[in-house]
Write a protein that binds this DNA or RNA. Structure first.
Lengths: 235, 235
DNA sequence: TGCGAGTGTGACAAGATTGTCACCCCCGAT
DNA sequence: ATCGGGGGTGACAATCTTGTCACACTCGCA
């Protein structure tokens, strides 16, 4: 059982795999290899690497497809991915990022730079990892990007809305008092009489649409983020 | 070596300590006690509890002072604190939160509610823990609150500014390409010619004042968040 | 050294965000 | 059943955020 991080190198060119592998091992990592997309996915499942260096152009399932599949699978979503793209191919870079890659590097690249990038990626994954995300029912908060994903769809929230919803969601099931909310979200240090919270809750509910019922009022106290009770269906 | 979380109960009233202790142990936690402020601090250092139930009114160093001291010490800053306040004392609640308490409960309280609050606090600490914060030099990012603390002072940033600075800081020492920034912060999916990034960098630098030099330009590529080089001093 | 590309800057305006207000509705206590 | 307090709502306006533009400055290459 090794303490070293394991890096998967996925590239159809053998000399690239060997060069990159040698440099990563020299930097203190363990490596495994894959020569095409399907082998990449199989290696990910078998070996559970800590990071993946993933070439775009591979036979069979290309790098884009592989990356997308990794991101759609809950058990592999967190694995950092660096994509190797052809020089000057901006569209490739954008496509890679759209499919969830964390970073990219254009061929030809310096192996030294690749090692630095992998190190940086692992450092960031360790610092801003799953702790940056909060998931409750259909709500997924990405704290790094200050983004909400609701039922699989990105939802545009203002800064206040994001903070408000996140505060409540992180205290799911608990009644959060109005004064506490005003203090944490608005920064009010004195007790104030204001209806701004009510207004923002209304706006937030409008944006949440069918999910608005997660945001419930506790009369005389504040609000509570909680899964809606099942509706009794008249038989 | 116990697997149970350890809760420190700090209250000068012995019957409160016993009642709370009994309920927390019944809920599956280990407990230790302290009867005054200094003893609380000593127990924190000796036993390193997972959470603290902290009474405001204690002889010697009161709950506010204790909480503030815990928050100022890097090694204890992360420990969740519930403050026990007197009924109806809004100012006490606010003062507790200002000194870094995570939650409060007014006396008299139901022991059952206290247990629920402790459970919630520990659950939150495990989910949104130190991973929600990024610290680089004088920069401290609180992702939960979407706040920046700079050299000990809260800094007002707009949503874009926060996202931009955080993106760069999380990649400290690396040159981050313009296109990547525009995509990650602005959500541009196509390559656009825009000067908005430059403008926002300027504005951010203005806000950062003496720390603006952390935000460095990599001509032709993008920007890099990096500690300024020491200035050669003419002798 | 000169030139062109890239970056910094101040100013302006459009659009977005935010808070307040007045009215209405709902809920809980008497 | 009534009443008062609390919460929901639509509308409005002030303020803030954001992006663009034109000009100036800087840098790197030939």
């Amino acid at each position: 059982m090794s303490d070293k991080s394991l890096i998967l190198i996925a590239d159809d060119e053998e000399d690239v795999r060997e060069l990159v592998g040698m440099n990563l091992r020299r930097a203190g990592y363990d490596t495994v290899e894959a020569a095409d997309g399907l082998q990449t996915l199989a290696q990910v499942r078998r070996r559970k690497p800590d990071a993946i260096v993933l070439d775009v152009m591979m036979p069979g399932r290309d790098g884009f497809g592989v990356c997308q599949e990794l991101r759609e699978d809950e058990s592999t979503r967190h694995i950092p991915v660096i994509m190797l793209t052809a020089k000057g191919q901006t569209q490739d870079r954008i496509a890679g990022l759209e499919r969830g890659a964390d970073d990219y590097l254009s061929k030809p690249f310096s192996p030294k730079e690749l090692v630095l990038r992998v190190q940086a990626l692992l450092r960031r994954a360790a610092t801003v990892g799953s702790g940056s995300e909060l998931k409750e029912g259909p709500f997924e908060f990405d704290l790094s990007g200050v983004k909400l994903n609701l039922g699989g769809q990105p939802m545009d929230l203002t800064l206040l809305e994001f903070k408000l919803l996140h505060l409540l969601a992180s205290r799911k099931g608990e009644v959060v008092e109005r004064d506490f909310i005003l203090r944490e979200v608005w920064g009010y240090t004195e007790q104030v009489r204001t209806r701004t919270l009510d207004t923002h809750v209304k706006r937030l509910r409008e944006k949440l649409g069918e999910h608005a019922e997660w945001l419930q009022t506790s009369r005389g106290f504040g609000y509570i983020f909680k899964e809606p009770s099942p509706v009794a269906v008249a038989v």
